Computed example of a mutant assay.
Amino acid sequence: MPLTESDNCHMIFYTNPQSRGQIARWMLEEVGAEYRQEILEYGPAMKSEEYLKLNPMGKVPTIVHNGQVVTECSAICAYLADAFPDAGLAPELSKRADYYRWLFFSAGPLEAAIVNRSLEVAVKKEQETMVGYGNYERVLDVLSQRLLESPYVAGDEFTAADVYVGSHVLWGLHFGTMDVRDGFKEYAARVSDREAFKAAKRLDEQLIAEKE
């Protein structure tokens, strides 16, 4: 829930509505965190000396929670799930194998494969062992198989991993950067039906509309 600048808040969320910040906002809404949002435009604002002290990469999103800085969407999702345990978005420690596996599969092989293909970076057969994901088709096939086996990536319950994986699937299908595989559309429908997703989407769409 975004607060005004005058509110005393222990969570600051740096974002741009047309960025991966949409993933972090969805996660913030899932855990029910109160946060102050700082909207940064692309260009000088993200490269300012002040902001680079928080995120030396000069990109969004970034969260600052009780003085702790967290960047990278997958890390933000995992952090918030632990920081707000009452939301129930992380399995108990003894059952986190699939949770970690698919969260970081998507942060590594899935995103790299999608980005490389979108940029028309051609990986030769003999180079597949070097790129970490093998090839684009294999990555999508592996994710498809998982989504056919389980309603959510970590099992029967929605977790923070689904915020991250779900965002990639939703964007991939919407922008055509992911080929359709069995289970993708059904999974996208499940995760996008969540109230937190809808609330986050409304907030970002409103910000985008205000800029036009």
Rank of each mutant, 00 (worst) to 15 (best):
H10A: 06
A78Y: 07
K198A: 10
F197S: 03
Y42S: 06
N55H: 09
L54N: 03
P109H: 06
V123D: 05
A90Q: 03
L119T: 01
A113Y: 01
I76N: 00
K125E: 14
C73F: 09
E205Q: 14
P91T: 09
G176P: 03
M11T: 08
V180F: 13
Q206N: 10
G132V: 10
Y133W: 06
I208R: 13
A113C: 08
G58A: 13
G134D: 01
N16A: 10
V121W: 08
A196Y: 04
F175M: 09
V70C: 08
E126Y: 11
T62G: 04
T159R: 00
A83V: 06
S94G: 07
V131I: 15
G32E: 13
Y14A: 00
A199W: 03
A189V: 06
P2Y: 11
C9W: 08
A161N: 00
D86S: 14
A107Y: 00
N8R: 11
P17V: 08
Q127G: 05
L148I: 04
T159D: 00
F197R: 00
Q68V: 15
A209R: 13
R20I: 07
A209L: 12
C77A: 04
V115Q: 08
T129D: 11
R194G: 07
C9M: 12
A112L: 14
M46D: 02
G108P: 03
K53M: 14
G108V: 02
A90W: 00
E120P: 02
N116D: 10
H174M: 14
G132T: 12
R181I: 10
I114T: 08
E111A: 07
L89M: 05
G32L: 13
S6D: 13
A199G: 05
R146Q: 07
Q127N: 12
A188Y: 05
K47L: 10
V180L: 14
A83S: 04
D179M: 11
D86N: 13
L89S: 02
Y79P: 01
P151T: 05
M46V: 11
G155V: 03
S74D: 10
Q37A: 09
L103H: 00
E205F: 15
T159A: 02
P151I: 13
L93R: 07
L103Q: 02
M57G: 04
Q68I: 14
E92M: 11
G155M: 02
I39G: 07
F105N: 00
V123I: 15
L93F: 13
N66T: 07
E157A: 14
A196N: 01
N135E: 13
E30N: 05
N135H: 11
D86K: 15
L140S: 02
E195I: 15
L40A: 06
R96C: 07
